[in-house]
Every structure is written in structure tokens, then in C-alpha cells.
Amino acid sequence: MITLAERINGMFLDVKKAIKERDPSVIHELAKKQTEAGATYLDINVGTAAADQEDAMRWLVEATQEAVKTPIAIDSQKLSVIKAGLEVVKNDVMINSAQGDPEVLDTYMPLAKKHNAALICLTMNKEGIPQNIDTRIEIAAEIAGKAMEHDMDMDKIFIDPILFTISVDQKQPAYMLEVFNQIKLISDPPPHITVGLSNLSQGTKEKSLISRTFLTMAIAAGMDTALMDVLDTELMDAAICAEMLLNKQIYSDSFLKAARR
């Protein structure tokens, strides 16, 4: 599966401090560790604390690139912060994320094409996050339609149907599986499906177990990408095992070791 490593985020205190003090060593280490753990992309989010978020993003992207050549996901709700990251990025890149309103996509998709970037699109719009399956699918279909209009390769589109914390709505994980199943049908080839996995277990006492149990269920339903804790080896191993059980990887006695490389 495609993993977005979540640790370079200003919401974590060590990263927040590193941004404030412009200390690249913390970022270098996180970039290396997460790359070794198998991250496909390193997600970079300045958080909310930085005074100048654009400058903080530029610095974080540069600090990360000093350490690794791993692709980078520039993570912000603000277009100006994303643009700041794109100015300095040299590695392969993903934009995380755009909302599903047509006029927003008309801005983000040409930007993604210009930088040959992948693009995460949320199934939400100016009316907020839909509370049912149908509206999520409707927005996902609009996103796929916009991608075709902008002549974007579907392989570059990642649809995020937005996973809530389990404490907010316990019915949600089950219907999210239905959403994954339906998104796969909206185009051929289908877009990628991604979630912010750690959101689900936020505030619980069994974060790792909840994450990896849902991850295996979600992979079976067609989700192929997640923003997650790649340093959780049990979580990463569960993903490898799920893919093997779904016949996406050939079994061998050393399949786990081989896939971890």
C-alpha cells in the first residue's frame, strides 16, 4: 500500500520546537526513520503554532530534502502554504489536500499538474463534511469528473472520504467500508482511496490496535493509501499481511521480511 508518514507535523511537540528553533536535526532524523520504516511519502504539516506558516513550510521541506529523497506530501488547508512548499520541493510531491468544491478543484488540479504532483481531494465542500454515504460518493464522483476535465492521470488522484474519531460516531467505520467499495466503481481505472488513519483512534486507549484492525478491514474494502504512523511496526506488518491475504503479494515464508525492505 501507499503510506504517508505522519510524524513531521507541527502538532508534535518535538517538531514544533524544531520549527521554532530552526533545528533541522530533529527533522532529518524523523525523515530517515520514517523512510527506513517504509514510508512512500513523508507528510509535512507545519501545524498551527508557527507564526509564518509559509516560511515554516519552506524550511520543513528543505530540511526533509537534506536528509532523504523520499517523496513529500505537502499538508495544509491553506493554498498559500501549499504553494510555499511547492516552490522549494525537489523530491516527488503530493498535495494534501483540496476540498471537493468544483471551483476549488479548478485551482488545485492545474497547480498539481504544473508540479506533476499527486493530489488528495476530500469528499467535503463548503457545506461541510457529509454525514451520509451518498453525498460522499457524489462528491467523489465530481472529483473524478473534474480530474478527467483537467486531463489528470487517475493514478495521481487520491480521494479521502474523511475518517472521524471513533468517539464522534461509532457507526462510521462500517459505513466507511461501503464508501471505499463504491469509490472503486466511479471510474476505470479508479482513483486511489486514502484516509487519515490515526484520526480514528484519537483519544482512545488502544490506538495501535484500533488502527491496525481498521486498516486491514479497509484494505480489504479497497483503500490503498493512508496517512499513518509508519513507525508502528505492527501496523505496517498488518498492512503487508492483509495485502498478502488478498493475493496482492505472493506468499513465501519470508514474505514479511521481504516486503519490509
Partner: peptide, 14 residues
């Protein structure tokens, strides 16, 4: 045997 086929490749690469 596809599984053993993969295993021997992993073993020699190791």
C-alpha cells in the same frame, strides 16, 4: 511452487 519460488529468491538476495 510459486511460494517456494519467491522464498529462494529472497534467500539468495539475503
Amino acid at each position: 511452487d510459486i511460494n517456494i519460488g519467491k522464498q529462494i529468491n529472497i534467500l539468495v538476495a539475503d
